[in-house]
Nucleic acid binder design. Structure first.
Lengths: 299, 299
DNA sequence: CACTCTTACGGCACCCGTAAGAATC
DNA sequence: GATTCTTACGGGTGCCGTAAGAGTG
């Protein structure tokens, strides 16, 4: 019986897929399969029922699971004994939205590189809904997405509150500086896909205020959206700070709306059953560096 | 980090000797040494201070020790999950006195062989005091010896109470059937070495009753003692039941003494910090089979 | 037919034990 | 010099990943 076998079993059991568990452990799927069958041989128990399409935990497996969890927890405790207050090691896969990717992600990476030099980060940029699902499946260790998760297996903790402002090219709106039903009818509304947090917030705001957009333009790339807005194709949203910087360049002007757009709460989300110290450290780093108001200077 | 490394560390730490730990784990001493230094490399901690003659636990090692203990305990729990109520596996080294070796040891071995077919037993016959020390050092998993241990690291649990009777060859004592000061002076007293439980009990009885033995004859082999007594060389002690069987053959007669010899309590002794299920199973088996009254028919 | 897990197999790494070395008492 | 631990080294086992196979829905 080895720790590797137990790790394989634990993740296979809690992710309910050998393939995903293998990816999370950075081993081939065949290796994971073998580790589990060897564990079964050692313990003389059948841990998974392979009769169906997917492997399902047997009763013996369910008994073993909490023991394996405690065991891996102890192993983590041991590993952190030496690096008391210091850096964690290993890999960390996490997800952020594009908004975060274009603002504080570089700062986060820089912060982690100094605090935990031996931690390999694998950021994944995707829409909030997709990230949440990948956290639940175990593909990602955590994600920072808009809103609290509705899934019971996922824990959420607020890390930032973001306010948005309307933006448009000066040529498109002339002297007008407010968003109303007429403007929404006249111009296109440029947004990220519906699964993105800001888009969901906006849709909700429109519905609550009985407003309807005329033409809609959805784009999955935030840089592209910014270009479209600057080019006068339509109006859209940006986090508050961005507009000041862009307005300085006279590319876009800020519009107001009544009522104002609500603030959007971003949360750090992770699997409730994943209590590795890694997550606490990463949460600290995120809290330290999160800042949606300053766009990265790269674009 | 592997379970083998932690096992090596745990036993090296609690036995305070790499060599003894290696023997207990059935590996070479070099292997054990390497496992520990690899663990130190993994955890980036120095667990043992090798500057002195013997390796001594560092502070970091002392922090790790309880974690390792819990870890190995969990591993044992897992192993027993499958064999619920059934047999344990592995090796078991234990010690018994010669009295036990010549009475119930075969029954114990037979009992364990049916209850736990995959357990390899390694009995060790020696004097009580020596056995106790080897239990403390970790060489033995447990021992059944006379009296309760005075060592704080050893737990004792009573498993049998043995009464002894005086024995002598008919030719030596004539019609006399009681032991008194005069008989003790006239004949030799044949005993096991002073470290043996029955001898300690006898010495205590002599002192309390202000008696003194004339000639003394100490022999470390119980079969030899029996032969000597039967040959009329002197008087000695046997557990109660033995005399009936030997008297039947008219080899020896039973003598009485006033006050009677006290009963000798035999205990199952094991390291207090060793909580493996193996020990509970073995204790059950010992309680099941312990019987000092019927000598094995082999001699 | 897409998907998931198992099996076969070649290669490489790791781990073990023997034996010799270093250091302490 | 005896004891205790470390280091060097050869040999074998075991583990990994690739790729093909079996079974399910």
């Amino acid at each position: 019986m080895t720790l590797k076998q137990l790790e394989a079993f634990y993740w296979a059991a809690s992710v309910a897929s050998f393939l995903l568990a293998a990816e999370r452990l950075h081993v081939s799927q065949s290796t994971l399969s073998k580790r589990i069958s060897e564990l079964e041989g050692q313990l003389r128990m059948t841990l998974f029922d392979r009769s169906g399409h997917r492997a399902a935990l047997t009763e013996a497996g369910q008994q073993l699971l909490p023991l394996a969890r405690r065991m891996l927890g102890l192993a983590d405790e041991m590993r952190t004994l030496g690096t008391e207050g210091g850096g964690v090691r290993g890999h960390c896969r996490f997800g952020v939205g594009e908004l975060a990717a274009l603002t504080w992600l570089p700062a986060l990476v820089a912060c982690v590189r100094t605090l935990h030099p031996e931690l390999v980060l694998e950021p994944c940029v995707d829409l909030g809904a997709a990230l949440e699902q990948r956290v639940e499946s175990g593909e990602l260790d955590f994600a920072v997405v808009a809103g609290y998760s509705s899934r019971s297996s996922i824990a959420s903790e607020a890390v930032a509150k973001v306010r948005f402002a309307w933006a448009a090219a000066p040529g498109l709106v002339g002297q007008r500086r407010s968003v109303n039903a007429r403007l929404l009818q006249e111009t296109a509304l440029i947004t990220m896909p519906p699964a993105a947090g800001p888009t969901r917030m906006l849709e909700h705001w429109l519905a609550v205020n009985n407003l309807e957009a005329g033409r809609r333009l959805t784009c999955n790339n935030l840089a592209a959206i910014a270009s479209l807005i600057a080019a006068g194709v339509g109006i859209g949203l940006f986090p508050n700070g961005w507009l000041r910087q862009m307005a300085d360049r006279q590319a876009v002007v800020e519009l107001r709306s009544r009522p104002a757009l609500p603030a959007l709460e971003y949360t750090f989300q992770w699997r409730r059953d994943d209590s590795r110290p890694l997550l606490a450290r990463m949460r600290e780093a995120v809290v330290e560096t999160v800042d949606f108001t300053k766009p990265s200077l790269l674009w």
